[in-house]
Deep mutational scan, measured.
Amino acid sequence: MAAGGDHGSPDSYRSPLASRYASPEMCFVFSDRYKFRTWRQLWLWLAEAEQTLGLPITDEQIQEMKSNLENIDFKMAAEEEKRLRHDVMAHVHTFGHCCPKAAGIIHLGATSCYVGDNTDLIILRNALDLLLPKLARVISRLADFAKERASLPTLGFTHFQPAQLTTVGKRCCLWIQDLCMDLQNLKRVRDDLRFRGVKGTTGTQASFLQLFEGDDHKVEQLDKMVTEKAGFKRAFIITGQTYTRKVDIEVLSVLASLGASVHKICTDIRLLANLKEMEEPFEKQQIGSSAMPYKRNPMRSERCCSLARHLMTLVMDPLQTASVQWFERTLDDSANRRICLAEAFLTADTILNTLQNISEGLVVYPKVIERRIRQELPFMATENIIMAMVKAGGSRQDCHEKIRVLSQQAASVVKQEGGDNDLIERIQVDAYFSPIHSQLDHLLDPSSFTGRASQQVQRFLEEEVYPLLKPYESVMKVKAELCL
């Protein structure tokens, strides 16, 4: 049975990233139509530049190519590739079939990587351009969430054990800070992308030097003109047959890092959902379990974690691919890159769409948070109580021993009897502590235990987050809708 299948058929496997999760716009960027249309555009740009620099290419040939950029006979191309065992030459023939007058000058002087690699770089750039505003929107939604809850005390956790208090907004800023680093890295790697350009079979530009009869300047002009037509500021000066596969490492490393950030955020949300302090959106008709109707599973956060793990592992592909590119190139890269580049971007696209949807509907339960604080705060307040007693004339050592005994009794009630923490009640009825009984409410005010959390939130948002989001103001209103 021949390899390949009808990918629109229910009898043929289709990647869930495309069929179930990723956005239509990201799927289109990695589609065959987008790819092969870009090949034709690159052939047109090459012909236009070659004509401008004096090669015998007519206006009629150029116009014929322009008129057929979208006229792609995919069936013919597939048949040609089956016959020739070469995808680029299959599309040269297919393009030439609908451009008979231009057929002889299509791909003039070029090698397969002229269309293959340059198209990949265009796709990487455009895919990054799709991700950047999506990530900015996630940051914006979380920034709104953090600002609104900047002063809401909550129990902090280290080692997932109760620690000092923080605020809900401050905790959210930990998430935002990681995503801001990801946004900066995505922008950097996007701006650092260079075009492969017009380089020939081993990167020496020998074929173009021959076409222009040894004119170095025209060869350099050709490279520059096509690079500018493709919208790049610069091209690699040095290439082998391909652009260095280190570029793929750079791009997928940034995406993998984004995956790590999203995994951490969504894990926190899942843990908070278990504590009943916070939940992701839950639709009115949504079913959490087929057997347990009360369940409210954090399905979206779980999906993000599941896909983020996949995204983090994909960076190993370009690392290994770059390491086995012998001399000017081997074909070890080809099949692998067809999979890992598309999957990385479709996965990143999915987790950003999902995280935006989550961040637009996060639900906080202040009463649950308050109750958990009441359970733990008495123990945390013991040092403040000791200091207040010393100020009232008591002995630190005597007070410490009193607190120690009462704390152990209260802990026994919590752990052995399943009761509430009654340390404060014990202190309130103990005559030894009568000098500070009137101060206990103040000493137990949760806001006095959150330090500068709310001020940190305000400063972080104003100095770091809002300036970073400013270039994306025009796209901030787009909502994230999930079908599944």
Rank of each mutant, 00 (worst) to 15 (best):
F95V: 13
I237A: 12
A127S: 06
T38G: 14
D182I: 09
Q177W: 08
D59I: 02
A291K: 10
E250D: 03
L423G: 10
K479C: 00
V226W: 08
A78D: 02
I427N: 01
E48C: 11
M278A: 03
I436T: 08
V262Q: 09
D216N: 08
L42W: 03
Y21H: 03
L44D: 09
D215W: 05
S454V: 14
E481S: 09
A3F: 14
L443A: 13
A47F: 10
H400Y: 04
Q51T: 08
E64Q: 08
S474Y: 12
T321F: 11
D191Y: 10
V226Q: 01
F449S: 05
A335L: 11
F282G: 07
Q41E: 06
D332G: 12
Q439M: 15
V324E: 06
R196D: 01
R194K: 12
S438V: 14
L108Q: 02
Q408V: 14
E360V: 00
Q458T: 13
V363A: 10
A348E: 11
M312C: 13
P293V: 06
T201D: 03
A322E: 07
R296Y: 04
A49P: 08
C483R: 12
D129S: 08
K170E: 04
V254A: 06
T38V: 05
H217P: 12
F327C: 06
D182W: 00
T350K: 07
D420H: 04
V475F: 08
R245A: 09
G197C: 02
H217C: 12
E343W: 07
T154Q: 11
E50F: 05
M316A: 04
I237M: 12
G361Y: 00
D268V: 14
S306G: 09
Q439E: 11
Q205M: 09
A308P: 02
E464L: 00
F30G: 06
G203N: 05
L174P: 01
A344W: 05
H310C: 11
A3N: 03
Q416L: 02
A411P: 09
P281T: 07
I237V: 09
I386Q: 05
L444M: 15
S112I: 13
L314M: 08
Q408T: 13
L258R: 08
S323Q: 12
C399P: 09
V92A: 06
R141E: 14
E81G: 04
H107P: 02
R83A: 09
K134S: 11
L46A: 06
Y294I: 10
